[in-house]
């Protein structure tokens, strides 16, 4: 996206400009839908043989690589337009409401895992107590897996909190001395020359504004980078704890949730839009 000085109007880039992140996101969602189908088929066909497990591992690797691609492109885009990435126009209001630093909250991975493993566990609970067969799905999470998940969860929550604090501190700088001073000078400049109490060169004020905001954006880039890194790391670490078939179940649930929440949010936005215009 453009980096011209006229940022305000540039923020409203049409959503499907070729080469924009919004366009990439549409394609990526499509690919995720395809992966989802592949994972569902693979889980159904899983034969508990070494070969079958190997092919599941491969599939998991491919899905993870697909997420990595997403964050790679996101990071490139953030270099040009961090504000757009933090306030993504290609997301629905519903998704936005549950976002944390421009994306999904890393600790939700554990809730997802507990929810999906919980429902699979309950499904098998009665048969399990009656000496049923081992299911191999997430209901079968072993004690050591649960222990590792538990440890990872706490590390993740801690990192998440640290980043939240970092963001809080940075957001507070919107009212730091330089911002307040610049806002004062810029306001004075818009008033009549006679009444103005300051005499400064408008050009130099513009330059100052630009450089001050730029430094704020740099910090935002750093925070977004860290947040995306935590998201990707959390996803990978959870998958590492799981067996290939469990990972497929987990990633399936993640993809389903992501795609459907996006869809529901988009529908909702369209409805609200229609209602707003009809009134």
């Amino acid at each position: 996206m453009s980096t011209s000085s006229n940022r305000v109007s540039d923020r409203h880039v049409p959503e499907t400009v070729p080469g924009s992140f919004a366009g990439f996101f549409e394609t990526w969602l499509h690919e995720q839908g395809r992966d989802l189908e592949a994972m569902k088929d693979a889980a159904r066909a899983h034969a508990k043989t070494a070969e079958s497990t190997r092919s599941l591992s491969k599939l998991v690797g491919r899905v993870i690589a697909h997420y990595e691609k997403y964050y790679r492109v996101k990071s490139d885009s953030a270099e040009h337009d961090v504000l757009g990435m933090l306030n993504p126009a290609w997301r629905s209001n519903l998704e936005d409401a549950f976002f944390w630093v421009g994306g999904w909250r890393p600790s939700t991975a554990f809730h997802l895992l507990y929810s999906v493993s919980g429902s699979q566990f309950e499904d098998h609970f009665s048969t399990l107590m009656m000496s049923g067969p081992r299911t191999g799905d997430l209901g079968d999470l072993s004690p050591s897996q649960l222990s590792k998940v538990n440890d990872l969860q706490q590390e993740t929550v801690k990192e998440e909190r640290e980043l939240t604090e970092l963001m809080a501190s940075h957001q507070e700088t919107v009212a730091d001395s330089s911002m307040v001073q610049l806002s004062h000078i810029a306001t004075e400049l818009t008033r009549d020359d006679q009444r103005s109490s300051v005499s400064v060169d408008p050009q130099s004020v513009n330059e100052q504004v630009e450089s001050t905001i730029e430094s704020k954006e740099e910090k935002l880039k750093e925070i977004l980078r860290k947040a995306d890194d935590l998201r990707m790391r959390t996803l990978k670490k959870v998958v590492q704890i799981l067996s290939p078939i469990q990972a497929v179940h987990f990633l399936t649930a993640a993809a389903q949730l992501h795609l459907r929440v996006h869809e529901w949010g988009m529908n909702k936005d369209r409805c609200c839009h229609a209602v707003a215009y009809s009134q």
């Binding site: 107590m129 000496s131 299911t135 072993s142 050591s144």
Partner: peptide
């Protein structure tokens, strides 16, 4: 009580519990 008792009596199929390779290190 039912769950605990069944585990202690070894009524739960071992496969659904801790795999043998995993030592409880907790």
């Amino acid at each position: 009580c039912g769950v605990a008792r069944m585990c202690l009596r070894g009524k739960v199929p071992p496969a659904t519990l801790t795999p043998e390779v995993e030592q409880i290190t907790s």
